[in-house]
Design a protein around this nucleic acid. Structure first.
Lengths: 141, 141
DNA sequence: TACATACCTGACTAAAATGGTCAAGTTTTG
DNA sequence: CAAAACTTGACCATTTTAGTCAGGTATGTA
């Protein structure tokens, strides 16, 4: 199981963004240069972040992006959800009333995978952008 | 982030295998039928499990596979490691002394991803095949 | 000893996901 | 009006996944 770079980049970009005063918009070009992420790719990512109301955009010269919420209220869950980075441990369609693999019963390890999914998601729910900022300050000493 | 079916199948197959008396070998054909996993694919998986000394093979008629260890000593970590299912949250080369993305410093969220990796791996280290067997008995009541 | 069963090995491949690039805009400020 | 910055959507090369296929080899039983 691996984290995709879309999810990773989204978090990196938001931490970068959050480190600046939220009154002055930060341009994607700046983030691109500082974090070494392609500008075109960042645009895709921020389009999604905007749709999910995590950031606001300000157009025109001197424009850029600004956080749309308090860093404390932006959890990793929200970020990952926005860019379609999801935790998926089973193939089975959860909506269908049937069990896994088209069989009548749940697969033998179904509970395990559910537990795993919860375990990982708990981590994401408990981490906010603010936590990351503080962490970063600490390690910068 | 998602679990690959190779990892998922490996665990499913081993739970299936462990449910039977470890003296009577279980053929891959039986596991294939019961779990709905392609026989050819199972052979690939069991080849790796055998190399990692998680199972033993018994050839010939009435042959099959048997656990090579106590179910209590087979952790999810061991299984996943055997079939090359690994948890990867960063792209960066851990061996290189340099930071991430070829830059001089560690990327801004590096600590976060390390934490996440540890969080997930802890889950795998704390779950044994035996835990899954018990769980399965419980839910069968 | 024949033969069926089951393990064993390696090459091959279709489809999906990943990780982007490219092109052509629109909006706003100096 | 020109430049900076956001906006949108199509496109694509590479890699990974999730297998299949084709041939083996070993061994227990009739």
């Amino acid at each position: 199981m691996k984290l995709t770079s879309k999810g990773r980049y989204a978090v990196m970009a938001l931490v970068d963004l959050a480190r600046f005063d939220s009154i002055n918009p930060v341009s994607l070009r700046d983030i691109s240069l500082r974090q070494g992420i392609s500008l075109d790719y960042l645009e895709q990512i921020f389009s999604k972040l905007k749709k999910n109301e995590i950031v606001k955009s300000i157009r025109g010269t001197q424009g850029g992006y600004v956080l749309n919420k308090n860093p404390n209220d932006i959890k990793l869950t929200n970020i990952f959800h926005a860019v379609d980075e999801k935790v998926k441990t089973v193939q089975c369609n959860k909506d269908s009333k049937r069990g896994c693999n088209g069989k009548a019963t749940k697969c033998i390890t179904h509970n395990l995978w559910d537990e795993l999914e919860i375990h990982i998601n708990t981590f994401f729910e408990n981490k906010s952008l603010n936590d990351l900022l503080n962490k970063n300050k600490e390690t910068r000493v």
